[in-house]
Design a protein around this nucleic acid. Structure first.
Lengths: 183, 183, 183, 183
DNA sequence: TATGAATGAGACTTCATTCAT
DNA sequence: TATGAATGAAGTCTCATTCAT
């Protein structure tokens, strides 16, 4: 069941959700086509399971990291580091979460949306703490710019070239932290 | 033929490339299904035409803007403003360019890639001018972060809420310009 | 109009009647697609025209050859020679006549059938003259065997290898003439 | 799966390979359209399966018949009888093999070609034994004439009229056997 | 005389899904 | 727990044909 999800991640990351056929997932998972339907009622449910698991874990990890920290800058670094490290270790899952965000609908979509919103709130609060109070720009917008930079990584990230992940974290800290406050 | 492309943009932006059926495009364009194939040999060619047109225009517009400018900061603002303004006026086209970047393959993909590379080079050079010399971070990486922020806009942009586009431009200038140099 | 028929022959000989699209014929003829429909009302009519022209000519040529001959053996040779020579010079036409014999239907089919029957009758009478009277085998059957041998030629005929057409004629004379009587 | 092949034979024999739609085959087989694709990956594969099965069986049957024979004339009769009897019992299959010989291409074509070549070699050797040594005509050519006569049968054969198959065999023996040597 | 534009029908094929086993 | 067999719906694309020009 977990190997099915791993296979689904791989295929959907490569072919997109619509382009990924249940057949291909089954083949990759080393399972009969109808074996998928024993564990998942739907193709949709595959995507839902991946997104729910991934976002949930991402949020949990971030909460753990933030728990011990007080300094706004440390918190922001935790946010960025958490996202990037998780990304590097679960590249397929995260690509599926980012690129197929709109591929779900109905109840599945809503449920994932809730977790995404929680994640966004966590990040936004940290970003806000790093901005001079009452000052523009709007923390929500800055968070969206930050997410843009982070979520775009899968488009160019190459483990051979960008092996040292701390470089990315440092970069984004340089861009999105004190410099914002410093204005 | 141009109305077909407009329809294709709309449908692909809404349903994704794989989710967009030629039938739906034809219906939206007010044309018989096979009418599409009179002008385009492929479904692929629809996507190709949209991406090629859009990126080409985007590059041309940017070149025009940059032609008159000398100050690095002005140039960076031109880059950001150009991208955002074009985006707001051609929201479907740009979404199709960003979200379906990998949906092409073969010769079509390569041809679009060339234009994208030209666009990237233009932006990277401007970004580089805005960084202290020899200093990290790498201009290429900073450009990728900038593109991330820019390309992510379609995920949250709402013309009613974000009606004043200069706000976005200002934000991104604040984040990506002098502050970088200021470190 | 004649160049269209030539093109049609070439394409149909290569791809079969169903496999030959009017588009391909038009392209080969160097004519617009709808140009075909100015001269021919139908795709069927193309095939009809080819078959009618070809069989008519074949019959006419045979009649001319037979006109001067009295000796049964000479007549048989004329039959075989006529068919083979015509075949070599109009390889596409004859292939279309043989291989697409059943591709027509209705009035077109019937009209061609009449000429084919006339051709068959001519040949059968010559074959009959070469058989001992009242003796088996039935001249009609022998004619069918002869036609089989002749019509199969397009499956293996190679102008480079089988350049000397008289060899084929001699062969078939050896097989289908006096030897029959000699039994 | 075998009923599908039987249906395919019937339809292809009637409509030709290009004219035979998978839908018609499915209907004849009493199967859903997509049911065909559960057993065959291609429309091509249907034709391939028919041709391969048929030629393979034809060759096997001929080998069995020839195994016990020594006399050249007996062998030739075996060749002719084998072909005609098989033809009468599998009229659709054989028509599909003869008329759609060139409808396959690529690997499918090559594989069938090999069996056809084996069949041809078997026949040619028997034909050669029935010719005076070193004498013309070339055994390969004579075999081709013989195949022509045999393969043309499906164009005129009518089980009601030609009920006694031995007549056909006798005819062809008369034409293609000792008489050749007798020259 | 000839064609560019357009279309409805139908072709092959793949898909998500079901169900008996 | 898992799958082989089967299917209806839908997908992309090609075809013969028409018609205004």
């Amino acid at each position: 069941m977990n190997s099915i999800l791993k296979a689904a991640s791989t295929i959907i990351a490569r072919d997109g959700y619509e382009g990924a056929s249940v057949r291909k997932v089954a083949a990759k998972a080393g399972v009969g086509l109808s074996g998928i339907y024993y564990y998942f009622t739907n193709k949709d449910e595959l995507l839902y399971a991946i997104q729910k698991n991934t976002f949930t874990t991402l949020v949990e990890l971030l909460k753990e990291r933030l728990a011990d920290l007080e300094n706004p800058r440390d918190k922001l670094r935790a946010v960025i580091e958490n996202h990037i490290e998780f990304f590097v270790n679960n590249i397929n899952d995260l690509k599926v979460c980012v690129h197929e965000m709109e591929s779900l609908s109905g109840a599945y979509y809503k449920e994932v949306l809730q977790i995404r919103r929680e994640y966004f709130r966590l990040v936004k609060d940290v970003v806000a703490e790093n901005l001079s109070k009452g000052e523009k720009p709007d923390p929500a917008l800055v968070s969206l710019y930050l997410f843009g930079s982070l979520n775009w990584i899968y488009m160019w990230y190459n483990p051979q070239i960008n092996s040292d992940v701390t470089v990315l974290t440092d970069n984004l800290m340089t861009i999105f932290s004190k410099r914002i406050k410093a204005t």
